[in-house]
């Protein structure tokens, strides 16, 4: 908090310590601060949403459109049609009315239709390169290409081993997720078991990274408390 006034640093320190007081036990100060944070966040988001999104992208074009419209259909009158977008948007709020609930279904249907179309495109563009990348040569050159082909890179045992582990892991995990038949046959059973172990390894990596993230969040606050609040000389 460089450049912050003393009272701001003290306020931030008190709030930080108040939130950390939860580590000792749940208490009223923690809950009070939590509610203040949520309220501040919602209020701030609302203002920013209006000033930086709705006002420049919807309100201003629409009002400009109406001004042109009232000046005898001057150029730009078509922008007044933005009012329809606003009307459509307000239909969401009919979810709060039992009598007019059906009106909200119009926009829900439109959103679902558009969403379904977009998800198709999204999944295709996101996952096709993934699927293509999973086809790897088990005996590979240093640049990852197979032995047959135009590459002149030398054979790489490291790259080959890497690819074998990669492809092997995909196969084992996919076999584990075959639930349409019982895993009785020994090769399938053992492959699925190995797939489960490999999944456990990935969950371990997830957990390790979780610890890393939580630690980083804490360290930033610790640095603030020591350096900015307590003014401890630091390296």
């Amino acid at each position: 908090m460089e450049g912050a006034a003393t009272w701001q640093i003290w306020l931030a320190a008190i709030v930080t310590l108040g939130i950390y007081s939860y580590l000792i036990s749940d208490n009223k100060i923690y809950r009070l601060l939590l509610n203040i944070m949520i309220g501040l966040g919602v209020g701030y988001n609302f203002i920013i949403m209006w000033k930086q999104v709705l006002q420049p992208l919807w309100w201003e074009p629409m009002t400009q459109g109406f001004t042109a419209l009232f000046n005898g259909f001057a150029p730009g009158s078509a922008k007044a049609l933005w009012v329809l977008v606003g009307l459509l948007g307000t239909l969401w709020y009919f979810q709060f009315s039992r009598k007019y609930l059906w009106l909200s279904r119009i926009v829900i249907g439109m959103t679902l239709g558009a969403g379904a179309g977009v998800v198709f495109k999204q999944q295709l563009l996101m996952n096709m390169p993934q699927i293509a990348d999973s086809f790897r040569p088990l005996v590979a050159r240093a640049d990852g290409t197979p032995l047959v082909g135009g590459s002149t890179a030398p054979l790489s045992l490291w790259m080959s081993l890497n690819n074998i582990i990669f492809v092997g892991t995909i196969v084992c995990v996919m076999v584990y997720f075959f639930f349409s038949f019982e895993h009785r046959w020994a090769p399938v059973r053992h492959t699925a078991k190995l797939g489960r172990w490999l999944l456990m390894v990935s969950f371990g990596a997830f957990f390790g990274n979780t610890v890393m993230t939580r630690m980083a969040v804490f360290l930033e606050r610790l640095q603030f408390l020591l350096r900015d609040w307590l003014k401890v000389p630091m390296f």
Partner: peptide
Amino acid sequence: PFVHGVYGTPIAFGCAGIQST
């Protein structure tokens, strides 16, 4: 998908450790 997939623009991420996996 929507920028790199369509236009080929290179993308890079800076993320929390927890998400990197």
